[in-house]
Nucleic acid binder design. Structure first.
Length: 931
RNA sequence: GCCGGAGUGGCGGAAUUGGCAGACGCGCAGGAUUCAAAAUCCUGUCAGGAUCACUCCUGGUGUGGGUUCGAUUCCCACCUCCGGCACCA
């Protein structure tokens, strides 16, 4: 029996492709390169975890594989690489728990995931494979970090520039420094005095600073800098964690250990400098709108004003607040400082001090999560002090409360309980006055009204609409020296260091003489030291000092300063997992380059804009929506820095983004609510039952997870049906972008479809029953042209499910007529090749071809064949279909209506009524309105 | 709470973006083949009703309203589910 043997065919072609280097794509300038249009199609690279691939990965990979196989047949040079994001906490924690070195577990995990990926027959150019843990890779991650370290953001040109240029400008006196170390640009100094608020007291030139001060000013401007910042400290893991690594109840995602809020000196990346450009340029890329919205919200730009309030009895001190509603200043009835605000200690009166100190203490130990988790009940303490409202000189009490965050705005607010929900809750709780200053539209309660309206009780501003008021009062505040317009972002600078072993070491040396010094480029890579004991110091004590594992590599950490030659030590922190994924799409372009992170000519070729991708960058980037914000924002930020410094040719890294939906699956529970695995579920009856007990089970669709016992393993599906069936099924389930349930019962359907193709072209026992001699069947020829057109269009629109159903319809028609010429069979095989490449290659070969079909031209279709002369028109009477007529496609309206009225059913419906109106949609439908 | 997305047969989904609702697949039912089964092939399959029958009628795309000759598609209000953010002043 020589039927369709998926396992044998798939193995054969995967080996053939690999042996022949079928999908190796040369770069410009390399042997075998042909100058043609390019297409860069990228999959979000996987994290090689111990559990291997889940069925969600191949969904996106299959989609891109179809696109690139199609593109090759359409004559594109295709860049389609794959690699592994292999540093990070999960691998390391697994290694710690099992006492194996992370390099070993990572290597094992990569081997396993690569074996799985290769089973699917994806047409990756494997010669470009990378892993972020490769020394040759992370050497360039370190190099990019040094670019960040050696750059600053020049607000005047809104771009990164080399730090030496800043030093030049400072030394030449083109830039001054104020008392807090911030840069001051004399070109704008004429306007400055009016804008100076608070205790700023003029500027200094660089030469007037001490050596240490100069260094502090420069270090404070770098895009990679160190700062004392509040972090999520997990003593049990011995590291700080990103917010997304902390669960809602303030514990570590990995290990479920308590996490504490605490200030620590950390590496930060100045992504906030790029907030406006990240916001503006998102308009230029072809991304799903919801993802763009999420990025905009994450950046969270708001426009408002900073206003200074004097403090009663504290000459020279002011409370600076940020507000987006300066028009409600007259309604401010109290102020709130964040518990960490430096003025709390200064202004608290003696009698209030014990209560305030206790409050600040408790707030300090709560994590941000805990603080927000208790959002329902507002807490706070009065400091005993009063501030003066600058618009009406009223004394208002100053409170401290943890609903105000030190990290946003100025860490202090003016509270307008009448028109702010949070302030209203607080005011009601502590019986503070509530004064209306905005008149809402008719019928809306003013208490808690936060929308726009008309100003009242606001002195000479009464009667102004909100927008106008904001502009007027901001102007007035600036004139009076009381405040100025200001912009704020939710986006924070990026906390970039982890106290862990399994990450890129920072190429930084701490010198007691010279401060922070970058490792010279020619000394890269700075390799991770081999360590027997790579465990972090763990503790139960929230105040335990961080002790990064690299601190134990004593030989490694002791070094000499590249600048002064004196003894120095290496940076002990490691980079977070995000680092490697911020630029991997660039390394794929030129993975073997030992001179640069990638050659610029090569970069310009693959990243160039095109009609379909006007912003340039990767032409199609496919992955899950879980990376909507962080990865995609971080990568955009790095890319912009590389662009500013002349290392990348495009402003954006990813021209087009496509998010695949999540694949979920059915989960079954018995009456006690215990999950039941698929092996124990009997689906043959009306409702799912337990195979042994016979108990009726409840069915629901859930995210795949071990605890729900509903994980589908791709290996077993492929073993049973083959990779082509798997690919086809995932594409046939529904639209790529929506989340869909995996239903094992549907898999045989697409498998049957493949078997029908096999039988139609190869046949059982190698007798192709349906292949006939020319001329074949005219109807089949027309349908084939339709199918070629539809499938091509659908691939370009990423609508794979309907492309497959079109192919199914073709096969069904062939079975019905029983006739197919060899030439038709060949064209159909080419159309199906992107979807089921192994089977297509095998049939192609059996039809007499000795070369791969991967670079055959996509079959052409003849538009004139698709135009039908006569069409069936449905006829509606008063919006209901009453009959169908046949008429020439190009018939005049009058003729079609005349024919329509001859239809007995239509005539009956029109009978005895007056025709008011007739509507003819050419080639589509006739509609008759009667009365 | 705010911001997104989605609700269509027993199930997954389709519908040229205002023009025949349910393509294609699963499941189910019937038939052919077979000693029998599997596999395969063919037919039917939204619900209710009329008819010997070709067919025809009525209802129907989460709910309620609206615009239109005509609404799964557009507008208003609401319900449910999924995803994101969450005291951002």
């Amino acid at each position: 029996m020589a039927g369709y043997d998926a396992a044998a065919i798939e193995k054969k072609w995967q080996d053939t492709w690999e042996a022949n280097g079928t999908f190796v794509q040369p770069n410009p300038g390399e042997d075998g390169f042909v100058d043609r249009p390019k297409l860069y199609v990228l999959d979000m690279f996987p994290y090689p975890s111990g559990t291997g691939l889940h069925v969600g990965h191949p969904e996106g990979y299959t989609a891109t594989d179809i696109v690139v196989r199609y593109a090759r047949m359409k004559g594109f040079n295709v860049l389609h690489p794959i690699g592994y994001d292999a540093f990070g906490l999960p691998a390391e924690q697994y290694a710690v728990e099992h006492g194996v070195h992370p390099r070993e577990t990572t290597a094992g995990n990569i081997a396993n995931i690569e074996r799985q990926i290769k089973m699917f027959g994806f047409s990756y150019d494997w010669s470009r494979r990378i892993a972020t843990t490769d020394v040759d890779y992370y050497r360039w991650t370190q190099w990019i970090f040094l670019q960040l370290f050696d750059s600053w953001f020049d607000p005047q040109v809104r771009a990164a520039r080399p730090i030496e240029e800043l030093i030049h400008d400072l030394e030449a006196g083109r830039i001054h420094v104020d008392s807090s170390g911030d840069l001051v640009y004399p070109t704008s100094a004429e306007r400055w005095p009016a804008m100076i608020v608070g205790h700023r007291d003029g500027t200094l030139t660089f030469g007037e600073l001490s050596h240490d001060q100069q260094r502090a000013v420069i270090d404070g401007q770098r895009l990679a800098y160190m700062d004392d910042v509040p972090v999520n400290w997990c003593p049990k893991l011995g590291t700080v964690l990103a917010n997304e690594e902390v669960t809602n109840d303030g514990r570590s995602d990995r290990g479920d250990f308590p996490v504490y809020r605490r200030a620590m000196r950390q590496w930060m990346l100045r992504i906030t400098a790029y907030a406006d450009r990240l916001l503006e340029d998102i308009e230029t890329v072809n991304w799903p709108e919801p993802i763009k919205i999420m990025q905009r919200n994450w950046i969270g730009r708001s426009q408002g004003a900073e206003v200074d309030f004097a403090i009663d009895g504290h000459e020279g001190e002011i409370i600076r607040v940020y507000t987006t509603r300066p028009d409600t200043l007259f309604g401010a009835t109290y102020m709130v400082l964040a518990p960490e605000h430096p003025l709390v200690d200064v202004i608290t009166t003696a009698d209030r001090r014990p209560a305030v100190q206790a409050y600040v203490q408790t707030a300090a130990h709560k994590s941000e999560m805990e603080r927000t988790a208790e959002a329902k009940v507002k807490t706070g303490q009065w400091t005993g002090a009063y501030a003066i409202n600058p618009v009406n000189d009223k004394k208002i009490p100053v409170w401290v409360a943890d609903y105000v965050m030190m990290g946003y705005g100025t860490g202090a607010i003016m509270a307008v309980p009448a028109h702010d929900t949070r302030d209203l809750e607080f005011a009601e709780q502590f019986h503070l006055p509530i004064v209306q200053v905005v008149e809402p539209p008719e019928g809306v309660d003013w208490r808690g009204y936060v929308g726009d309206g008309i100003a009242i009780s606001s002195g000479r501003f009464d009667g102004l609409a909100t927008e106008e008021f904001k502009a007027k009062i901001t102007e007035w505040l600036e004139e009076q020296g009381l405040g100025k317009g200001a912009v704020n972002y939710k986006l924070r600078d990026w906390l970039f260091s982890r106290q862990r072993y399994w990450g890129e070491p920072f190429p930084i040396i701490h010198c007691p003489q010279c401060g922070l010094v970058g490792v010279p480029e020619d000394q890269l890579p700075l390799e991770l030291p081999e360590m027997e004991d790579f465990r972090p110091a763990i503790s139960d004590d929230p105040d335990a000092p961080p002790a990064p594992p690299l601190g134990k590599a004593t030989d490694w950490l002791a070094t000499t300063c590249p600048t002064c030659g004196g003894p120095a030590t290496r940076e002990l922190n490691a980079m977070p997992q995000w680092a490697g994924s911020c630029w991997y799409y660039l390394r794929y372009l030129d993975p073997g380059n030992s001179q640069r992170f990638c050659d610029s000519d090569v970069e310009r070729y693959w990243m160039a804009p095109s009609d379909a991708n006007p912003s340039g960058g990767v032409d199609l980037y496919v992955g899950g929506a879980e990376h909507a914000v962080l990865h995609l924002l971080y990568a955009r930020f790095w890319h912009k820095v590389l662009f500013d410094l002349g290392h990348a040719s495009t402003v954006e890294p990813f021209g087009k983004l496509f998010n695949q939906g999540m694949i979920r699956s059915f989960a079954y529970r018995d009456q006690r609510g215990v999950y039941v695995g698929y092996d124990d579920v009997d689906l043959t009856g009306d409702s799912p039952r337990h195979r042994e007990t016979g108990e009726t089970l409840s069915e629901s669709v859930e995210k795949m997870s071990k605890s729900l016992k509903n994980v589908v393993n791709p290996d077993t599906v492929i073993a049973e049906y083959g990779a082509d069936t798997f690919r086809l099924y995932e594409m046939f389930m529904g639209p790529l972008e929506v989340s869909k349930p995996w239903n094992i019962q549907d898999v045989p359907g697409v498998h049957r479809f493949l078997q029908r193709i096999w039988r139609m072209t190869v046949g059982d026992d190698d007798v192709a029953l349906l292949i006939t001699d020319p001329p074949g069947c005219a109807e089949i020829e027309v349908l084939l042209h339709k199918t070629i057109k539809k499938v091509g269009q659908d691939i370009e629109a990423m609508k794979f499910n309907t492309a497959i159903s079109a192919m199914m319809e073709f096969v069904n028609a062939v079975f019905k007529t029983g006739r197919l010429t060899r030439d038709q069979a060949e064209r159909f095989v080419l159309v199906g090749a992107p979807f089921a490449p192994h089977m297509a290659e095998e049939i192609w070969q059996r039809l007499g071809h000795d070369r791969t079909l991967a670079y055959e031209s996509w079959p052409a279709y003849d538009e004139s064949l698709l135009v039908e002369d006569t069409v069936e028109w449905p006829v509606q009477v008063n919006g209901k279909v009453r009959g169908r007529i046949t008429a020439p496609a190009g018939a005049t309206d009058e003729d079609v209506v005349a024919v329509a009225l001859t239809n007995p059913n239509v005539a009956a419906a029109v009978e005895g009524k007056a025709i008011v109106k007739t509507i003819v949609v050419p080639g589509r439908l006739v509609s008759i309105v009667v009365k």
